[in-house]
Design a binder for these strands. Structure first.
Length: 1004
RNA sequence: ACGGACGUGGCGGAAUUGGUAGACGCGCUGGACUUAGGAUCCAGUGCCGCAAGGCGUGGGGGUUCGAGUCCCCCCGUCCGUACCA
């Protein structure tokens, strides 16, 4: 029978589901392999062909590992909390859970059509209370932990309390990190003091040490979304989702102390097999820089201005100190007579949105506070300025300005005419700052004549000696904002007693999302959860109705990344009700062996994912501190848009070709000719710009045919517009006029200027999106070519990590391959002339002994494909399958001994057809159970090798010699060859290089 | 500006350790078989040239018997970060 992808694929999808083919149990007797895809957020838009790219790659790995004898965990689930469902709820009133349900159902159907081997019995959803019970539980563990800096690990709060009871807090205890650095430093206390503190006071102190903590903090507030966003959710001063403006706001905020892990998140990267670009993004995001903290004592009165600098060697070049507008010292140090002016600047600077601040990078602004600090070495007065080029959120929010050594300081000093001197030798400070790391220092007392690299440690030594500074490592990484003023997220399991946060009892988890009348904030700006009538808590009873004796519950919910920070663990044991996953399951599955997902998560999800894993390890819940050993980022599939041209103000739609003809028409004669050619009453065509033809520059006007005398100058010039048309009605860049007419209402009565019944379109590669009408739906491809073809083609497009445009035309190649492969099993296709009417009709696999040539094809393929899967080079494996298939057709090979192993290795790529052929070959089991065949080098050995003979590195001829012939033998034989002799023209070669089994090079 | 990735036919791409550049597929050209072709098969297809031959991996230099691959400089594209002190 002929190859019918539709019935075959339907049959096997049902069969796999019925048999539970891909269900996996923990089986410690087998080696494990864990392949994980970043789970999707199922939006309403459905899949386009770019989405499954990563899933197909991981499915190939999962299937091949399974056949290679591994116990493979290959799960799928959904990141089902999220903003779009909530926004839809606000608009329509439909509960986000319902929206999510519908989207997931559609998503699942699309995934199923592609034939993935996910173990759906392990599906998880972050919005499922059975799942988020454990997200909340992990939050409570974080709430119950502090970071011991000396031991470099998180420890339970009980140990900190014990420490306070015994030793108090000396205020400078490097072994414990306190909370938000923007707060007042925590005053020291003795153990006797601790005993006298009120419960409230104690809790206040403890809160500053917790890894999940509540504090006043500067947050990214997005008024349009009505919520706080984490740093990684803000791009260029607007929200990543929706592009709404974001402003800085100070408010009480739940945060995660990821900063405690900065150094370890950085160090851990070295051991990971992740792409260099992701690792580099994380390094930049963490932003470690070494330098010094220097204290500049205030000239008048108490206190000091602390600055962080990476160039303490330039200390003698300090000509002023600049504070960020947010700096809390400004109000303190500014003398009364300058207060009004300074505060006016501060207010104005703070109110400028992030966005404005970024677009106005070049503009210098600032104000002198009127206060001075003392230079730590010269004791001279140094003026203190406020400038918005200093960021409140980085370092101490203050810098020592060295105009001679830093361009930003130079710009500021030059703008405000603040005097300064050079600190490096042979440098003209009138032109700019000397930022070179190779410079030699000058005018710098004890640093004179030293190189920067030597001067830095020396300067720090002197600062330490004088007690005015110390070595300091600073990180760019900020603690992560954890609360969201939204409905559709995990409730934070915290209640408030006397204004102090307390954890909800573990037995009362999950703390289930309450029902609310609207999904909007309350009138007084409280988050949606505040609308619920039963959003309060009694530690003895659990959730209770609001009222007497009930404590109010936290009303913010967790951010999207909470649930995804640990989901890989839940897959190991998804139904466990007593623990997030059993120790046995965790111990067996361990880390993810291969994690596949997009690179857009580099500084968000992938960092939190690592952070939580490290935390869970330290608290003894798991035994590894990195979640994924290997990570690959699949590239983006771009869309290929098609468009035709509309001559504005007319009903004319022109093809790409005609557009260029119109543009190329130079004079009246050309134009008349054109009008005749198209047999349309186009009349006059005029052009303004005849030079380079670009869409923008192209301008044309059509006048009434009667008006033949009108000159160019009198025409109304209008643009030609490129109109995107749906790529699904286009084939090989050609679209029929019929299809065009029915595709858009405005095309119905258009006049088409094209190639007869068709138009040739222009094409453009851009993002695949509805807007450009270039979305290709996998369902349509599957309907027409089948899932196996889709899978093969997506892999064949190019390297998995690379972005590339989708071109449906190219899919014919892989489709043909599958037909040809099928025909290997069915009947010989006529090889010389014409069609074999019997082609593909009879199953004719024979049991004959394979020839040497056939075995060579087989084993070369087994080797190549096995190795290619290992290095995720799927495009080259597909090409190898094609080569094998073509060779076997040439050899007219229909032998079981060859085709059977070939089918097994094809199965991960094209599982449906492989399964069907496997059954036709007489096997009852699924091909998923078939053992991966091993390649045998013996079949690949050649008797002879065709040496390329090159002269001075340029190949000129080929000579075949036995493989056994050694280098001398080859050399002698080559030189004896008449053709070589002819090229030598009787002269002796300078040198002859023979690399056995590779090449011969003759140097003349 | 800094950091990362990359640059090969008309197109997607191959070349895994420095060893025959352009595998495989699309497209294109010609042919066969056909009532038909969006089916199938055969042949060709880097560029220039009738050919012999020459030229070719963004450009320029270098190392080497030999460079797409290694080194230096420059140009370009994409991604990330962006006043980070």
């Amino acid at each position: 029978m002929a190859y019918e992808h539709k019935s075959i694929e339907r049959k096997w999808r049902e069969e796999w589901r019925k048999r539970g083919t891909y269900r996996v149990e923990n089986d410690p007797s087998k080696p494990k392999y864990y392949v994980l895809d970043m789970f999707p957020y199922p939006s309403g838009a459905g899949l386009h062909v770019g989405h499954p790219l990563g899933y197909i790659a991981s499915d190939i790995v999962a299937r091949s590992k399974r056949q290679q004898g591994f116990n493979v965990l290959h799960p799928m689930g959904y990141d089902s909390f999220g903003l779009p469902a909530e926004q839809y709820a606000i608009q329509t009133g439909q509960h986000p859970a319902k929206t999510t349900e519908v989207n997931i159902a559609r998503y699942r159907e699309q995934l199923d059509n592609i034939g993935f081997s996910f173990d759906w019995s392990r599906e998880v959803r972050t919005s499922d209370p059975a799942y988020y019970k454990w997200t909340q539980w992990i939050f409570l563990q974080l709430f119950d932990s502090w970071y011991d800096h000396a031991a470099q690990k998180a420890r339970p709060m009980a140990e900190l309390i014990e420490r306070f009871e015994k030793h108090g807090w000396n205020g400078n205890d490097g072994s414990a990190l306190t909370g938000n650095e923007e707060l007042e430093p925590l005053a020291e206390f003795g153990h006797t003091d601790w005993a006298t503190f009120s419960e409230r006071h104690k809790q206040g102190i403890l809160l500053r040490f917790r890894l999940a903590y509540l504090s006043e903090a500067w947050v990214n507030w997005c008024p349009a979304l009505g919520t706080v966003l984490a740093n990684d959710e803000v791009k260029d001063g607007v929200s990543e989702r929706g592009g709404h403006p974001v402003e800085r706001k100070r408010m009480p905020q739940w945060s995660m102390r990821i900063t405690a892990y900065a150094q370890r998140l950085l160090d851990g990267l070295d051991g990971l097999d992740w792409s260099e670009s992701i690792k580099e993004s994380q390094r930049n995001w963490i932003g470690r820089s070494e330098g010094a903290l220097i204290r500049f004592a205030l000239a008048s009165g108490e206190g000091s201005v602390d600055v962080f600098t990476t160039r303490p060697d330039t200390i003698f070049g300090v000509s002023f100190v600049t504070l960020a507008p947010e700096h809390e010292l400004i109000a303190q140090i500014t003398p009364p007579e300058r207060m009004a002016e300074v505060m006016a600047y501060v207010t104005q600077a703070k109110n400028r949105s992030e966005r404005e601040r970024m677009t106005e990078v070049k503009r210098v602004s600032g104000v002198f506070t009127g206060a001075y600090v003392k230079h730590p070495f010269t004791h001279m007065d140094v003026p203190v300025w406020v400038g918005d080029y200093v960021l409140g959120g980085y370092g101490t929010g203050a810098v020592m300005a060295v105009p001679a050594g830093d361009q930003r300081d130079w710009n500021f000093a030059t703008h405000f005419k603040i005097p300064f001197t050079a600190v490096t030798a042979n440098w003209d400070i009138s032109t700019g700052a000397d930022e070179s790391k190779e410079a030699t220092l000058a005018n710098s007392v004890f640093l004179n004549g030293m190189k920067v690299a030597d001067a830095i440690p020396r300067a720090i030594d002197e600062l330490v000696k004088k007690g005015v500074g110390e070595r300091r490592i600073n990180f760019r990484l900020r603690d992560a904002a954890f609360g969201r003023q939204r409905y559709w997220g995990e409730p934070i399991p915290i209640y408030y007693k006397d204004g102090t946060p307390y954890p909800v009892e573990e037995q009362h988890l999950p703390l289930v999302l309450p029902e609310v009348d609207k999904f909007l904030p309350t009138e007084d700006g409280e988050p949606p959860l505040a609308r619920a009538k039963d959003w309060s808590y009694n530690p003895l009873q659990g959730r209770v109705a609001n009222g007497d004796g009930a404590y109010p519950l936290e009303t913010t919910t967790m951010p999207g990344w909470a649930g995804s920070s640990w989901y890989f663990l839940r897959y190991m044991d998804p139904k466990n009700e007593g623990r997030f996953a059993s120790p046995e399951a965790i111990n067996y599955w361990q880390q993810v062996d291969l994690y596949v997902g997009g690179s857009e998560h580099a500084t968000g999800h992938l960092l939190y994912f690592r952070f939580w894993t490290k935390f869970l390890k330290e608290r003894g819940w798991i035994n590894f501190d990195e979640p994924a050993k290997k990570l690959v980022n699949q590239g983006m599939i771009q869309g290929q848009s098609a468009f035709v041209f509309r001559i504005n103000g007319t009903k004319i739609i022109a093809s790409h070709e005609w557009f260029h003809r119109l543009m190329a028409a130079h004079d009246d004669a050309d134009i008349k000719q054109l009008a005749n050619d198209v047999n349309l009453q186009l009349g006059y065509i005029a052009f303004t710009e005849m030079g380079e033809i670009t869409m923008d520059a192209a301008k044309a006007t059509f006048k009434d045919a009667a008006d033949q005398g009108i000159s160019f100058k009198d025409c109304d010039f209008q643009n030609i517009t490129e109109l995107h048309i749906d790529v699904n009605i286009v084939q090989n860049n050609i679209v029929t006029i019929d299809a065009l007419r029915s595709s858009r209402p405005e095309f119905q009565d258009a006049e088409f200027l094209g190639e007869g019944e068709t138009l040739k379109c222009g094409t453009l590669v851009e993002k695949m999106s509805k807007r450009w009408l270039n979305v290709v739906n996998p369902d349509d491809i599957i309907e027409r070519y089948g899932a196996d073809t889709l899978r093969l083609y997506e892999m064949f497009l190019g390297p998995i990590e690379q972005s590339k445009p989708w071109d449906t035309n190219g899919i014919e190649g892989t489709s043909r391959f599958l037909k040809k492969f099928w025909n290997l099993f069915h009947s010989a296709v006529a090889s010389t002339h014409g069609v074999d009417p019997e082609a593909g009709n009879a199953f004719l696999v024979d049991d004959a002994e394979p020839t040497k040539a056939e075995l060579k094809v087989l084993h070369a393929t087994l080797k190549k494909v096995t190795e290619d899967i290992e290095r995720l080079s799927f495009n080259t494996s597909v090409s190898q399958f094609m080569i094998a298939c073509n060779s076997l057709h040439e050899l007219k090979c229909h032998k079981r001994a060859v085709l059977e192993p070939l089918t097994i290795v094809l199965a991960p790529f094209a599982p449906h057809i492989a399964e069907e052929l496997w059954q036709l070959l007489g096997h009852g089991e699924s091909i998923a159970q078939a053992t991966w065949p091993k390649w045998d080098a013996a079949h690949l050995v050649e008797d002879s090798f065709s040496y390329p003979i090159s002269f001075n590195g340029k190949t000129r001829l080929q000579l075949e010699f036995p493989i056994a012939l050694d280098a001398q033998g080859v050399e002698a034989a080559v030189l004896a060859n008449p053709e070589v002799q002819a090229r030598l023209e009787g002269k002796a070669p300078k040198k002859v290089i023979v690399v056995p089994k590779r090449i011969v090079n003759i140097v003349l």
